[in-house]
């Protein structure tokens, strides 16, 4: 019973974690991409369609990732190279993504999906208590943990990560140092799209292997909020994502047990709880200030 609950928490947390990690990288470079929800759902429908046609969930992950990158590329052309307003462009990307996914997914509604199988790690999965929970999971769970470590190391331990953060902090100074501000930002945004696409694939391949219109259900927005409240730190994003997952599952069970609270309130609970805890996290002003990309949302146009 507890194992089943823990596993469902992991499944609920994973897509948010992956999408939020991608957005951390994008925002650390100074680009606010509000299109996460759109990129995610396009990834989801792409994965579902690919799995339907080819039967291969791994190919589905790949195409979903590419779809996310394509969406992010669209955003990058507009918001980075043509210096359009990032907020408006991101919102448009989300609306566009939702529309495209709805259109593309129309014929898939009601069809059974292909499920991505779990992979049990030899020996480790036999460990008592934690074995099945942590080591007999979908490969996307392992990927999400690897990404958390990878993004942390990249941002704070490598020169490339330092450059990326510098571009997000003071693009003018970074440009003066000879860094290619907009190229770095584009790569960061594309990485964000890649992650959002994979997060979408997790929704249709692991979470609910079927297609419903509006499947992403605001998870892209939660990922976005998570990034801010987690002060752009990957480890805090991990904590926030799991908190969200835990409360999501808890409210499912509460509803099943017939707790006398309106179900609408219970459904809103994960969002409320996550935001509340992260607001408390974010109350350390100095920590937040040091970690906030100072140039977030501001396009960079080099003067010539």
């Amino acid at each position: 019973m507890i194992e089943a609950i823990l596993i469902s928490v992991i499944i609920a947390a994973t897509p948010i974690l992956i999408a939020a990690l991608g957005e951390v990288v994008a925002e650390r470079s100074g680009v606010l991409n509000l299109g996460v929800e759109g990129m995610m759902i396009v990834g989801a429908v792409t994965a579902f369609a690919t799995a339907q046609i080819t039967g291969s969930p791994y190919l589905a992950i790949l195409t979903a990732a590419l779809a996310g990158v394509a969406m992010a590329g669209l955003f990058a052309i507009l918001a980075i190279w043509l210096a359009t307003n990032q907020v408006a462009t991101g919102l448009a990307l989300t609306l566009f993504g939702l529309g495209v996914a709805s259109l593309a997914g129309e014929s898939f509604v009601g069809r059974p999906g292909v499920k991505l199988g779990d992979i049990a790690v030899p020996y480790l999965s036999d460990l008592p208590y934690v074995g099945t929970v942590l080591f007999a999971q979908s490969p996307l769970f392992y990927l999400s943990i690897a990404l958390t470590v990878g993004v942390t190391v990249f941002l704070f331990r490598t020169r490339a990560g330092l450059r990326l953060r510098s571009v997000g902090d003071q693009p003018v100074a970074a440009h003066a140092l000879g860094l290619k501000v907009n190229r770095i930002r584009t790569l960061a945004v594309l990485f964000g799209g890649l992650c959002a696409g994979i997060a979408g694939a997790q929704l249709t391949l692991v979470y609910t292997p079927q297609w419903i219109d509006g499947l992403s259900a605001g998870r892209g927005w939660i990922a976005l909020a998570l990034v801010v409240f987690a002060s752009w730190r990957p480890t805090r994003v991990l904590a926030g994502a799991y908190l969200f997952g835990a409360v999501t599952i808890a409210q499912f069970h509460a509803q099943a047990f017939g707790v006398d609270i309106p179900s609408q309130f219970l459904s809103a609970l994960p969002y409320l709880a996550t935001i509340l805890v992260l607001v408390i996290f974010a109350s350390n002003r100095r920590f937040t200030m040091v970690n906030t990309p100072a140039a977030l949302g501001r396009p960079f146009v080099p003067d010539r």
Partner: peptide, 16 residues
């Protein structure tokens, strides 16, 4: 100064 306030001295030097 083209310095990054939220970064350490060493990080700033490395960037340049």
């Amino acid at each position: 100064f083209s310095l990054f306030e939220a970064f350490t001295v060493e990080e700033n030097i490395a960037l340049g």
